[in-house]
Design a protein around this nucleic acid. Sequence first.
DNA 1: GAGCACTGC
Length: 947
Amino acid sequence: MNTNPKPLFAAIDQCMLADRHRLRMRLRRLKGKPLSMIAAEIEVSQQKRQQRQANLPIPTYPEELPVSERRAEILAAIQEHQVVIVAGETGSGKTTQLPKICLDAGRGVTGLIGHTQPRRIAARSVAARIASELQSELGHAVGYKVRFSDHTRPESYIKLMTDGILLAESQTDRFLNQYDTLIIDEAHERSLNIDFLLGYLHQLLPKRPDLKLIITSATIDTERFSQHFSNAPIITVSGRTFPVEMRYRPLQAEDDDDQDRDIQQAICDAVDELAREGQGDVLIFLPGEREIRETTETLRKHHPSHTEILPLYARLSASDQNKIFQSHKGRRIVLSTNVAETSLTVPGIRYVIDPGLVRLSRYSHRTKVQRLPIEKISQASANQRAGRCGRVGAGICIRLYSEDEFLARPEFTDPEIKRSNLASVILQMKSLQLGDIENFPFVEAPENRLVTDGYKLLEELGAVDARKQLTGSGRQLAKLPLDPRVARMVLAGKDENSLSEMLIIASALSVQEPRERPHDKQQKADEKHKAFVDDKSDFIAYINLWRIYHEQSKHLTNNKLRKWCRDNFISYMRMREWHDVHVQLKSVVRELGWTLNQQSVGFDALHRALLAGLLGNVANKNDKKEFTGARGIKLNIFPGSVLFKKAPKWIMAAELIETGRMYARTVAKIEPEWIETVAADLCKRSYFEPHWEKKPAAVMVYERLTLYGLLVNPRRKIHYGRINPVDARELFIRGALVEGEFNTRAGFFEHNRKMIADIEALEAKLRRRDVLVDDQVLFDFYDKRVPDDIFDGRRFEQWYKQTEQKQPKFLYLKKEDLMLHQAVAVTEVQFPNSLDIEGMTLKLDYHFEPSHAEDGVTLTVPLPALNLLRPQRFEWLVPGLLHEKICQLLKSLPKSIRRNFVPVPNFADACLEALAVTDSALLESLQKQLLRMTGVKITNMDWDLIS
DNA sequence: GAGCACTGC
């Protein structure tokens, strides 16, 4: 039995790259067991490789292409270096010839030659072109893979794909082992995908020393790519283009006498100037649809003759776009957005007019919202535009700005990674465990604040925690081929059992708007689109459109369905794209083990799930009918929305975008209460007016709830105990125990209440407030005894019951707990609770509250007894108060008399002792006694009884 | 009272 694995390890080195890792792992695990099974597999993989080597296509090269002349040089560079930069303009042939040169270099045998393009159309057409040059059927030696369709075979050598596909593959094949060579084409476009890929490859190359990487770019900024890949060699291939004459025609007049022109006028002048140059089509670059429309009208008035004027932009229907490929007589002027700069090549252009403007997407750090400002284009972009007229012959480019201005412009357009919210990139990196984005080897690192905002959005969606770590739901979001916000909706849809509806909406939000609204048929289109409208939600309109369309598709032929789409101003192509995304989402969701609801879901549940992804896009209408969104930004409902005319108080939007104004697009009515349930953790809460309430026997507080500064709930009463148990306990002790606002049968409560009442009664008799301890002492008494976690009636009763059994009366106050000093003077003799008069016992009440009607001592007399009483008796009050009264009387005497009775309290004491309560008047008894003691005679007139 | 262009697990 052969148990020596060594030769097999060596044999694995001759296997297909994609198999090696798996085979090595298995071989390692076998340790000492029979190796026959794995040996067979190794054999298969080796044979596959040998077969590929044997069948390797032998390329031929069209000699007229500039790249063909540099073949040997490029081939040598590929063999000597891991990374090669190939720079060349359009027409150099690099895109079609490089993969063939790679074949010649022996690449493509142990693994595929992967070749990326920024766009699906390009991936497909380049594949077709190379296949035909290798005289192989498309999908055999040369295949392509774009979203929704994979046309490659195991025996393919070259695989064209979008850069997004390669990036997506890295999620399941971390080492990209199916490739032995990668060509990243059009790297100068610097899309998010390309920048992410270049960073990814930077850290992959050391782990895959056998992998070759070729980066191709227009001849701009190639140094940057070279530096990023440790000074990789740059091979520059000339383009096969014709010279373009540059003419600068700024809007500002050169002479002071001349008037400045506006862009419309300048375009007309430029068209006239080019008309004098002779035959040839003109391409004019404009920032947007509106400008194209305006200029079309200006030019129609200006050139009424046989000039054909064609608009061109991405939103235009396919048939209108295709007009640029139809032959024509006379002069053609194409007015185009940036589609014609990179994505689409307009054939037969001899002249370009470039006003130098573009509408560019820029993420605003200030408002956290995507903007679409019109900006001046970069030099690179201007040159790219000029190049569009040098493809069929010498061209002329008229720039509607000066050369100085051109030179003053930035050299390159900011790459997308510096203009985007990075949530999606960060989420993918986290899920790939690529470490922190801050340390990721980007060609150009995005600004920190963009990274911060990316993390913030992910935190809002619950994809990362406060420590920026990926959460469980973050891992799930990363698996969905969707924008993170939309992915979050789908996840919530799973939880709310509304996945069926949610997948329709999520796929709709991922594709371009399928409803068409041609400028000349706006009303007709709106009329047709009314069939899909829901009066509370633009999201429901997508579901309605989806259902109606699929109902039609069931019984209509393809052609009839297309016609139905045309009649209803729906883009058939985009419906197909929507459908395809939906199919893909369904399959991803199935793999995740999620199930689609069979029963349709209600409005609320569906929109709560949508809200989970759109918390940052919530807005609230104020009294002036203006909307305020997160962080105080003012916004408007997009006029195309169903809610535009009658807007509800609260809305959420699928997207916020700032163009002319800040617009909320795809909008639905929401209830603010949903925010509380969906965003419980995200809402900021402040608390005010905590207070004890007798009836619920709890400390209550008002809560103020805001989300990103929006007032979701201004005043909601809730229990304070769970929010701040320490404060709540204090308020409980004060309110319930000290102040006694408490319904309880606990024994201590009545006892303590009575104890305090007794002392208060005592104070009333003494006419002073310094006997009963103050509330703070009472508080301290309870504070010492009540445990920390007792802050409401229910908890208190429970604890009291248990503790009372072990320590009876443990909460009973004693007299000494309550009295500041021993009020010895207070005896029953001094302050009797009743008076015996005329054989009756009459109740006495004491009250100490100056200026109150009942201040003093109150004798309660039954009405029939009233005329039996003699008023003189009451001048004597009660003994405890008589002393003070005598003092006051003595002090009221005129000074000449008063000085005989100093010190007054002593004389008062003496009088008190000598006098017995009689029915005679107090003043007369006093006068007699004082005369007896001092010989001073006082008359009734001497007393001042008023003050 | 109305938006540049692409792409994907």
